[in-house]
């Protein structure tokens, strides 16, 4: 199903886009199984309409929005972003959405709002992977308020000119391109603004391996592997060397948000 949007030239990355087939059959979405081939096979059971998203917490105007109201909230843009997975591979994906800041401004955050928490659907009937205790469900992710307000942080409804396929986090997900992929919550049902740093799923499960910030950083290795290089899916074949990973995944405009922070400590 097509989703109309015009390309935002500020984010029209001139890199080869990942093949649609690769981007939709190689997914980490544990709600539908832990193998990367699982989501494409299993996610048919996800019902993406009707769908509502609750926005609550430290806001003056909490609201529950259905998908159509969300889609109408701001003009949809196409943006071509790099996606770097914490596992050491990457893709280039044309997403469709708008900056999350549009939504956050609408609900008027209070002075206490320091973080934004994203909560994924938690329904065993639709998501068979929830039966295995690989994570403490529901999947929770989070951003600091300034990160969430950054124009790059994209509330995403589509990719490749179409609505999101279920396995890619339909009907609404985040795309936070300067952070490892798992920071971008999928199939979001609740967005909560909080005083305290959210207890995010991967950080809870292995705090020494997955930090709250998880900015793409070639200088900070994962405890079990190097993050200095990556393999671009569909491009870096078996007989090519892996490419160098870029600081903040090649989005230097976010660096000022971390000025003065020890990024080895706040990894």
């Amino acid at each position: 199903q097509k989703l109309a949007a015009s390309l935002n030239p500020a984010y029209a990355l001139v890199e080869k886009k990942t093949a649609y087939k690769d981007a939709t059959t190689y997914n980490n979405f544990y709600e539908f199984g832990t193998d990367k081939a699982d989501p494409a096979v299993m996610a048919g059971s996800l019902k993406t309409r009707p769908w509502t998203v609750v926005i609550e917490g430290e806001v003056k105007k909490p609201v529950t929005l259905d998908l159509d109201s969300l889609l109408r909230l701001a003009p949809l843009e196409e943006r071509i972003y790099r996606l770097r997975c914490v596992e050491g591979w990457s893709m280039v994906i044309p997403w469709i959405g708008y900056s999350l800041s549009h939504l956050l401004k609408k609900v008027e955050p209070t002075g206490n709002a320091k973080y934004v928490e994203f909560i994924t659907l938690d329904d065993k009937k639709q998501m068979p992977g929830l039966r295995s205790p690989v994570l403490d469900w529901p999947y929770v992710e989070g951003l600091r308020m300034d990160e969430a307000m950054h124009p790059l942080a994209l509330l995403t409804f589509g990719m490749y000119g179409e609505i999101l396929p279920n396995q890619n986090g339909a009907p609404v997900r985040m795309s936070v391109p300067w952070k490892y992929g798992f920071k971008s919550a999928k199939s979001i049902v609740k967005i909560r603004l909080t005083k305290e740093q959210p207890r995010t799923a991967w950080n809870q499960s292995a705090p020494n391996e997955y930090g709250f910030y998880s900015n793409v950083n070639p200088q900070v290795d994962h405890p079990r592997w190097s993050q200095a290089t990556e393999r671009r899916i569909g491009e870096d074949g078996l007989f090519t060397r892996k490419r160098k990973t870029l600081m903040f995944n090649g989005y230097p405009e976010v660096a000022s948000m971390y000025a003065g922070m020890d990024l080895k400590k706040f990894f």
Binding site: K21, D22, T25, Y26, A37, I233, G237
Partner: peptide, 9 residues
């Protein structure tokens, strides 16, 4: 071999 042949092999 899928999207990530290295991983597959």
């Amino acid at each position: 071999l899928g999207a990530n042949p290295l991983e597959f092999i």
